[in-house]
Nucleic acid binder design. Sequence first.
RNA 1: GCCCCUGUCGUCUAGCCAGGCCUAGGACAUCGCCCUUUCAAGGCGGCAACACGGGUUCGAAUCCCGUCGGGGGCGCCA
Length: 499
Amino acid sequence: MNKMSKVRVRFAPSPTGYLHVGNARTALFNWLFARQKKGVFILRVEDTDIERSRPEYYERLLSDLRWLGLDWDEGPDVGGAYGPYLQSQRMDLYHRYGQQLLAERKAYYCFCSPEELEIARQGALAAGKMPIYSGRCRNISPEEAAARVARGEKAAVRLRTPNQGEIVFNDLVRGNLCFQLEVIGDPILIRSNGMPAYNYAVVIDDHLMAVTHVIRGEDHISNTPRQILVYQALGWEAPQFAHLAMVMGEDNTRLSKRHGATSVDQFAQDGFLPEALFNYLALLGWSPPEGQEVLEPEELVKLFDLTRVSRSAAIFDYQKLYWLNRQHLKRLSSREKLEKALPFLRQAGLLPEKLTADHQAWLERALEALVEGVDKLSDLAAQFELFFTFRLDQMDEEAQAILKEESAKKVIQALGEEIDQQGRLNFNDFAAIVQRVRQKTGLKGRALFHPIRVALTGQTSGLELDKFIPLIEEGATLSWPRPMLSCQARLNLAQEWLR
RNA sequence: GCCCCUGUCGUCUAGCCAGGCCUAGGACAUCGCCCUUUCAAGGCGGCAACACGGGUUCGAAUCCCGUCGGGGGCGCCA
């Protein structure tokens, strides 16, 4: 490869399902590498599996990638000088080179049926050998083969591979990798239905798209020698390869739905910030030189380095993702917090159709307090609902017990007197009132705060009271689908409940 | 079964290539303390790992061999 040439990498998913975080990580590493090298990131869609490819998955793929913050310089939707970027539109290319290889006798027609191949495969497996194609059709003369094809007989095209020697390549992550040719049979290039096989199409496309680095999952390691054989047959130079370790679930099996959310859109729906998932995925199998952990995409682009990618599989840790999500949530401005939270709040049905400026200002302050204690945006609704729900008849036993304490009654009594005098409370008022209640009752700490909390919220835990109280005081003056009660109203109900 | 990759705290990892700076560092989780006159957040601290066995060497987490464990591949899927 020409060292001067511009870095060109690609992400080549097949539209056969939702974007899995494992694949998203592969896309991310490619993207980071491209951006950091000021190269080109290509999106190519491998839709040659007619059985499983679906248009809706294609759309979803693009939107999931965009949500994550990845953009591509060339791709099926944005075009580019090396297109088309949909494999299904590149059939003539695959056939052209297929014909060339056939003419050069580097490839040959294979008339074996899938059924007989399957039987041979099972047999080899049972005998404890690598199932390798027998090469039965290798020596059918080109004339005979051509005649049979002309007659309409189904045929696949196979690459004629040497059966001795070895293929060595340097993996950017793992170093030198070596494969004996004995364990590699003649791979199918073009299937009998005319569609190219993966190991063939990927070579044609990568070469024609001038891809310089192939960064992909470890599950492709053993495909690599087959692909190199195709490069050699075509007289092309192979790109550099880098194989990333797999992403696993807690039980060390490949991450799957059983382990929880695994598709990118699920994380979006659960209220993870794209930059948090981005950050987490980058740290899964790669580490920055100075150990920084909370990083924005731009910082990651600067720091990324393929040589610091780890070679062993990594377990997806939801706890750490939560933590990173909290870190990124905190970094948002009030306005951004509101923007991000709005859909989740709307979903809970607690917002009026139209938000006034007062609503917005109030919401920004409320969110500022609420976001602190939340792992993901979808947890917000339950917390938010506490502003509106005040049901003393539904308190849990612990809360009831707290209210029923003798000292609690004193606290509530004193608090009631203060509030009646004061009217609407702001932040400072509340602090002063608590101070006076404390003096009156001689109580402090838990004995003081717990009853106040329960009397005002019906809950034993939640937002800090000095944040919560001013919020409900002000919120009570705004209109909501469900009313928000003021302190005074709440306290009255609490006193009633105690009688 | 065969081929390939891989193995540092529960988890993600630093250190390994250029052996002594490692009584192995950081982060998440966990536990304890402090702070806030509650919870959470935050601050501080604790617990916790070089898979095992052989070499090489004055000296090995680092180099070599083997064993065991984990993963991937072995398709007319990608």
